[in-house]
Every structure is written in structure tokens, then in C-alpha cells.
Computed example of a mutant assay.
Amino acid sequence: MASTCKAGSPSRKKIVAACNETKHVVGAGLHTDWLHGYYQYANRIAHLHFLRKHQVEAWLVFLYFLGDKDMNGPDSEAGWEPHIEAAHRHLGLKNHMQWVVSLFQPIADLRVRRLD
């Protein structure tokens, strides 16, 4: 979940403006750092805000995989909670945001289909 914005100027100026606008809308303090720590997470929330602002009835779905041994991921929803809470705390987010949903998918339930 960790990521940092690597954009240069002038793109960075646009990103900062979009993040600050989104922070205001979701009730996060302007002092919160959306460019370091959890940038990709914050960026998706900013994109959701952009789409909704332009009358696109978008939702954001965070899909968390359970039991991914290759990535050393959590085996349960409860195992993901500390990571999600850390991201929300860092970004100044409330636990529930409108039009944002979290789904937890056990990878053992996934089937791989080859397109040959």
C-alpha cells in the first residue's frame, strides 16, 4: 500500500491542487500528506472526486486479496484492518467515505482461465 508521488512540476502542481480540493470535500485536514506514504490510495480517492464532480456516477472499489502467500498478504479481513486504518490515519480520512467500498477476496476462491 505504500507509495510516493514522483511527478515533476507542472504536473505536481495540478496533483497538489486536486488533492487539496479532495481533502476539503472528504473532511481531511489540509496538513495531511497525500503525496508521501499512501499516494496511490489518495490518488484514487481524488480521481473519484473528479469523476463525481463532473456528474459521473462513479464508485471506488478497493479490492483486498486474502491469503496471497506470494505477496505475504493477510489471510483475513481483520488482518487487513491495521493497514487500512494506518492509511486512513495518515491521510486524515474517516473510516467511511461515500461511494467507496472495500471488498475482500480470498485468492483460493479465484479460478485462472487461460485465453489460448
Rank of each mutant, 00 (worst) to 15 (best):
M1G: 10
A2M: 09
A2R: 15
C5T: 03
K6P: 02
K6E: 03
G8V: 06
P10A: 09
P10G: 11
R12W: 06
I15P: 01
A17T: 06
T22F: 02
T22N: 03
T22G: 04
K23I: 07
H24Q: 15
V25W: 03
L30M: 06
T32C: 11
T32I: 00
D33I: 04
W34S: 12
W34A: 08
W34R: 08
H36A: 08
Y39W: 14
R44S: 12
I45G: 05
I45K: 01
I45A: 02
H49M: 09
F50W: 09
H54S: 09
Q55H: 11
V56I: 14
V56N: 07
E57C: 07
A58T: 09
L60R: 04
L60A: 01
V61C: 08
F62E: 05
F62Y: 14
F62Q: 07
L63T: 10
L63S: 13
Y64G: 01
L66P: 05
G67H: 05
D70Y: 04
N72Q: 09
N72F: 11
G73F: 00
P74R: 00
A78S: 14
A78H: 06
E81S: 08
H83C: 03
I84L: 15
I84P: 05
E85I: 05
E85S: 13
A86D: 12
A87C: 12
H88G: 00
R89S: 03
H90Q: 11
G92D: 06
L93T: 10
L93K: 12
L93C: 13
K94W: 07
Q98C: 10
W99Y: 15
W99R: 15
V101G: 03
S102F: 15
L103N: 10
L103K: 15
F104K: 06
F104C: 07
F104W: 14
Q105V: 15
I107C: 07
I107W: 03
D109Q: 13
R111I: 07
R111T: 11
R111W: 01
R113N: 08
R114H: 06
D116V: 10
D116A: 13
